[in-house]
Design a binder for these strands. Structure first.
Lengths: 195, 195
DNA sequence: CCCAAACTTGCACTTCCGGCAAGTTTGCAC
DNA sequence: GTGCAAACTTGCCGGAAGTGCAAGTTTGGG
């Protein structure tokens, strides 16, 4: 992922990744509800206490990759000089979703379906999205001007996240249309007025 | 709230309400994080075990009233014969928000501000909203026809919930504009195309 | 080579949450 | 009203989550 890091940082990355992969693998084997932190830690070769040093709770580990992608999306937006904000956003999102769509073979869909039923996981998934939404809203706010700028920035961020969330969700239930196409359709529908 | 119920049902309602009120009161006194299930149960005069019979977790109790209002909103929609769906939805929401706005004096805002910081509560709040969104999407789906009906129904429900969530959130941070007015503004911005 | 800072780990403690079984209350039919 | 079945409450138990603390271990830099 990143380069130019000291041994210490690389080890941390590796531990995080090991925990993530162990968690996903175990969830695939026995179902997400039957995976304890102890089991994940053991499978990753660290202590339970170390797990909680890396992730605040069991759910968080499952969204490690998503959160990482989202952070990259935020970074991408930050650098895009772009004129029309909605276009910049949806463009960056399309890249991201296309990537996710491409390596969906590995575990992403499986994982999603696994976590699908559990309402507890649902809560944390959405919480993860919402955390990003806030970050995004801040980012957007610095680009929006005029009356009611902050409100409009928030609506913008919320609409955008709604598009992402809804299209992924729908695509998981109806994989006959490709994820990028689904997103394009949804994004066109929810594009907020007054941008 | 409801009428025409047997003693058993009325007692259950009363217990739920007592737990809810105890929870809110305690949270106001010592902060939401310092309230244990035991304390709530004791304050409501039941056993801890009874608490968990009524609410799946500590967070749920705080959203009891919100969930109740949302269920009423769904019911209202179900009965409205209404022509334009977005109008029906926003109309019902306005009624609801106006009511909430009116008796915001009691505890609602206080409560919201209390729970505001805690990310754990955030997750559950959004989970509550999302549960309603699904119910709503089902309700809406039965009214939407034509190509891509289900996707459009979902986008509709999601946009609507986004409007509710965003306006409440914004209003809590910026109470200078009234909640109903804020909602009207946001609803106009996020109204989805292709309805 | 050595030291300080960073990281890991075990331990203790609180809290959450669900199963189970015994006790209590409610609804209902007679 | 009496009695019974179903529903509800409660205490007890155990597994698991999550967090502070104080050792031990590893890393980076002088």
């Amino acid at each position: 992922m990143e380069e130019n890091l000291g041994l210490r940082e690389r080890k941390k990355l590796a531990t995080r990744m090991a925990l993530y992969e162990a968690a996903v693998r175990l969830a695939a084997e026995r179902g997400a509800e039957n995976v304890t932190i102890d089991a994940i830690a053991e499978a990753a070769g660290v202590s339970r206490r170390t797990f909680t040093n890396y992730f605040a709770n069991k759910e968080e580990v499952f969204y490690y990759r998503d959160a990482y992608r989202m952070r990259r999306l935020c970074a991408a937006i930050r650098q895009q000089p772009g004129s029309d904000l909605w276009t910049v956003l949806t463009g960056a999102a399309l890249e991201l979703l296309t990537e996710a769509y491409r390596d969906a073979d590995t575990s992403w869909i499986t994982q999603r379906r696994l976590l699908h039923g559990d309402p507890n996981h649902l809560a944390h998934q959405i919480a993860a999205y919402t955390a990003i939404e806030r970050e995004l809203a801040g980012e957007i706010a610095s680009r929006v001007t005029g009356p009611g700028a902050e409100l409009r920035a928030r609506v913008f961020a919320a609409s955008f996240m709604t598009a992402m969330r809804t299209s992924v969700q729908y695509w998981i239930d109806h994989p006959e249309t490709s994820l990028p196409d689904t997103f394009r359709t949804v994004a066109a529908m929810v594009a907020p007025k007054g941008s």
